[in-house]
Design a binder for these strands. Structure first.
Lengths: 198, 198
DNA sequence: ACCGTTCTACACCGCTCGATGCAAAACCTG
DNA sequence: CAGGTTTTGCATCGAGCGGTGTAGAACGGT
């Protein structure tokens, strides 16, 4: 019926996501994006309407991917609950190294965006907030199970412990983006577990 | 000998710091700065040379202020070492609420800048790295003292524990900027202490 | 083979960016 | 009060920004 696309929208979205992830929203120009995607500006605007909408889709794509990976680990009933939290830390640290760019870790697009945009972009803030609630409730479920199973011995409210784990993850992400070494991040994660299994 | 300034450079620097803190480097234009400072652009450029140099000075000013406040707490020998770490968390959380803007926490300029610029601005990265080392060594000293005094019972390497505390602080800062409530942050801080006093 | 529709390439829009030039104003020194 | 120096106000610069208009190329349906 009409001329088909010469590019895969999903691949373009993933590539755009990685550029936003690395450079941030403001520092990524639409021309940067087009060059990286290998597409003309009119193609990008035709497919994604605006830089802001492209970013929203890229962030959503990141959240979906990250949530899927986290869910796979947190729902793995072959592991004990505490081990699942440990494995989540391990996966996050491994991903930092898998996604390095020019000897530098990228951190996490969610954390980066929270810092850069949450305070002045309500649409983005809403996306981030929804994702935060999902992560907190997923963590809380596992922590609750761990307390029932006895391998998470902290007597604190599981909601608080979930907040704590989530904050430590954010801290690890910031440290990674700040240039911390892998051993440093692993030590932070192991130490963080002590508060759950005390 | 010549016409004197009509403004206080220190106050201008502090005001600029607060604007960068709230909006980030890229999202703050030199025109924003001039309007907020109540100064003409030529005055700002005459005093600070460039946006980038102004930012470096603002960041340095922030680091000095923050370091002074943290040192005061961490060197307070009237408190036990563990209590000093606790007080540091408390101070950080209190400052988040003291510096709120339009019902939103600001986080920490150091964390925000690490996320936004550390990966692509070597000068800024060097400033942040130097500050990070100072903070880690200050924390490590207190943690070492706590272990000697017996109120920090974790057997982990004090350097790792210092990294851990610093990461938790970064995580709290991100959570604050993401809209977490005060009780949430306090729960994270209390939980984090459990890993030191287990 | 042609038509209708969509996509692509390229030029271009108005605007804002960081930064500068210049002349008038304001001060201190002598 | 005149001379020398710096600051200030305003205009302006080239570059890059996000976004658009348009003409023609590339397809699928008939």
């Amino acid at each position: 019926m009409a001329r088909p696309r010469t590019f895969d929208e999903g691949i373009a979205l993933d590539t755009a996501m990685r550029l936003f992830w690395r450079k941030g929203y403001e520092a990524t120009s639409t021309r940067d994006l087009c060059e990286t995607l290998g597409l003309d500006r009119s193609s990008v605007y035709n497919a994604f309407n605006s830089k802001h909408e492209l970013f929203k889709r890229a962030l959503t794509h990141y959240i979906e991917t990250t949530t899927a990976a986290a869910t796979e680990i947190l729902d793995d009933h072959t592991r004990s609950p505490a081990d699942r939290i440990r494995a989540l830390f391990g996966r996050i640290i491994a991903d930092e190294w898998a996604n390095r760019h020019e000897d530098r870790n990228q951190g996490c697009l969610t954390v980066n965006t929270t810092v850069e945009l949450a305070g002045r972009d309500p649409e983005i803030a809403a996306l981030l907030d929804r994702d935060l609630r999902h992560r907190l409730s997923a963590l809380q479920v596992v922590i609750g199970a761990g307390r029932a199973a006895g391998d998470i011995t902290s007597r604190r409210d599981p909601a608080d412990l979930a907040r704590y784990v989530n904050s430590v993850i954010a801290g690890i992400r910031v440290a990674a983006r700040g240039g911390a070494g892998r051993a440093d991040l692993e030590a932070v994660a192991e130490t963080a577990m002590d508060a759950l299994t005390r």
